[in-house]
């Protein structure tokens, strides 16, 4: 089970004055159960890339295989693909529309063709997974706090029971606690449900803390691809494309520059703490 992108390119407004190549020959393999972070500055092609993964956008050239099948084949059901590759957009709470939280979460499963009972069951499960308190289930979604609304919106995608979950900046606009809660939730789903999770983020700190693999996008191309420690070793290259490494990675470099015999390339506070404490043993 995997998603494979083979030489995928996409161009906005082909043949017009605004022609812009958003993806250039992207080749990627996303395996089952991975937890991936996609980083890149605004306009680097991240959003375009993830919208290709569930078939919302169609590549100009190249192929995408979902579990070994070319999704651009004529008899391939793209709507079904979208239920298996769930995509949570940025500020997903802006897409809530139903009269109650519960009904809104049912929207996905109902579109999948499940009857009321089955859709309801899935909605319950999804809401519980997303950590929405039960007393909110029958309230209008618009009355909820920002953080709760976002959970409901995420539940709306989870209810379709996707195998792959893609989230475009799920923590945008949330306060630090809200951010940690949502990220913990996502990490928990990856762990307990063995879901493949793809997280698009602007925060190097968050990505370093949670994901196993980082894909760095720049100008529509894959710039770097690897484990956080590997990727952030190239912090100088990252700076050149308008990104940076987590704060602690720089601290490690500072300490090395001050002649301290510190080992490792820490990317999280915990790793840095361990490395530094080792110095003093």
């Amino acid at each position: 089970m995997s998603i494979i992108l083979n030489n995928v390119s996409f161009t906005y407004g082909e043949g017009t004055a605004y022609e812009m190549q958003a993806l250039k020959n992207v080749t990627l393999k996303i395996d089952d159960g991975e937890f991936i972070g996609i980083i890149g500055h605004t306009g680097s092609g991240k959003s375009t890339l993830i919208q290709h993964l569930n078939g919302l956008m169609k590549a100009v050239s190249g192929e995408i295989y979902f579990n070994g099948r070319d999704i651009y084949e004529e008899d391939f059901d793209l709507r079904e693909l979208r239920t298996r590759v769930g995509l949570v957009f940025q500020y997903p709470e802006h897409q809530l529309f139903e009269t109650t939280v519960f009904n809104d979460v049912c929207f996905g499963p109902m579109n999948q063709g499940f009857d009321k009972n089955e859709a309801g069951l899935r909605a319950f499960e999804a809401l519980r997974m997303a950590g929405v308190p039960e007393k909110l289930y029958y309230q209008p979604p618009f009355d909820l706090s920002g953080g709760q609304k976002r959970r409901v919106a995420i539940a709306g995608v989870l209810a379709m029971k996707p195998e792959v979950l893609i989230l475009d900046e799920p923590t945008a606009g949330l306060d630090p606690k809200g951010r940690d809660e949502i990220l913990d939730l996502i990490a928990g789903m990856h762990k307990s449900k063995k879901m493949t999770v793809i997280l698009v983020s602007h925060s190097m700190e968050d990505v370093a803390k949670y994901v196993q693999r980082i894909i760095v996008m720049d100008e529509g191309q894959v710039f770097l691809d690897g484990a956080p420690r590997e990727v952030f070793k190239y912090y100088k290259e990252l700076e050149k494309i308008g990104l940076c490494a987590p704060e602690v990675t720089y601290l490690m470099e500072d300490l090395k520059a001050r002649g301290m015999a510190i080992d490792g390339d820490a990317t999280t506070v915990e790793e840095a703490k361990q490395s530094i404490l080792k110095l003093f043993q």
């Binding site: 919302l56 979208r82 802006h94 897409q95 929207f107």
Partner: peptide, 29 residues
């Protein structure tokens, strides 16, 4: 529109009435 399509919404098929009904998830937000 894209976000609702990601939840399986269908804006392209169906009779006129069905299509009009399908617009609710777009129009309310």
């Amino acid at each position: 529109m894209k976000a609702q399509m990601a939840r399986g919404a269908n804006f392209e098929e169906g009779s006129l009435i069905v299509r009009a009904k399908n617009m609710i998830p777009l129009l309310v937000p």
